[in-house]
């Protein structure tokens, strides 16, 4: 079941991040961003759906995407700690999205060569979206980092706050040794190069944390994820099996 577990990890990353970004809907600082952020949320939720759907088929126990998304508790979620971090402010949200997209873009690019046809299909759609997320969030990180005194301070605070969640991106998790999915650790140089290019322009310094956090893949999450899932799953739990 290594492939099932690995697909579930990836799917959880995308769904949790997508739900977090969707929390901005109606609250963005300007109308243009209020459309851009739900767009980005829907991109990653769309990828999550494809991954859950495939994971359910690989598992072969008849679980569909809704069962996997809505009927698992906090300890059963295997997402990275990075993606469940609360939105805090716009700087945190943009940086979190940049960190994720700067990883997933080379990941999906490598997955285009996967021997698994379904993985190649998911990668083909996601790779374009991740390129856009890097561009959009990168431009904001540059403008906030190199902006006003307050925007630069908020950007630096975000870099400091998220530093402890970076290393977990590169842990292999359940996908270790699988031919169908790329190695995660090998993508670090490209991630570092993307972030450095943007940080140099933004006047930001990367922070390396001596105490990196991990455990998301084992279901050990921060206190925020339970609240988020309770809200996200409430409709499905109140109306099991309801459809549009």
């Amino acid at each position: 079941m290594a492939l099932f577990d690995a697909l579930l990890e990836l799917a959880d990353d995308h769904l949790v991040l997508g739900h977090r970004v969707s929390e901005w809907c109606g609250h963005a600082p300007m109308l243009e961003e209020d459309l851009a952020m739900p767009n980005m949320a829907l991109d990653v939720i769309g990828t999550a759906r494809n991954l859950y759907d495939y994971a359910g088929k690989v598992e072969g126990k008849g679980r569909d995407e809704d069962d996997l998304a809505y009927l698992r508790g906090e300890r059963e979620y295997r997402n990275l700690l990075l993606v469940e971090r609360p939105n805090e402010d716009f700087a945190h949200t943009m940086l979190r999205q940049l960190y994720f997209a700067a990883f997933m873009h080379p990941y999906w690019t490598a997955a285009l060569e996967s021997p698994d046809e379904t993985v190649r299909g998911i990668a083909g759609k996601a790779v374009k979206e991740m390129a856009y997320h890097i561009r959009h969030t990168g431009e904001w990180v540059i403008r906030l980092g190199d902006g006003t005194e307050e925007s630069a301070r908020r950007m630096r605070d975000a870099v400091t706050a998220l530093a402890i969640y970076v290393d977990e991106l590169f842990e292999e998790g359940a996908g270790e040794g699988l031919d169908a999915l790329p190695d995660r650790a090998a993508l670090r140089p490209e991630w570092e190069a993307t972030i450095k290019r943007i940080f140099d322009e933004a006047g930001l310094e990367q922070v390396t944390s001596p105490f990196p956090q991990s455990g998301g893949r084992d279901g050990r999450h921060g206190e925020g994820l339970g609240h988020m899932l309770a809200e996200m799953q409430s409709v499905h739990r109140a109306h099991p099996g309801a459809t549009w």
Partner: peptide, 20 residues
């Protein structure tokens, strides 16, 4: 029309607002 801080952000916002 739309609001944006500069031409790069304007193009991105246009992509999000008008070419969905």
């Amino acid at each position: 029309s739309l609001h944006a801080t500069d031409e790069v952000m304007a193009l991105q916002a246009a992509r999000d607002v008008y070419t969905r």
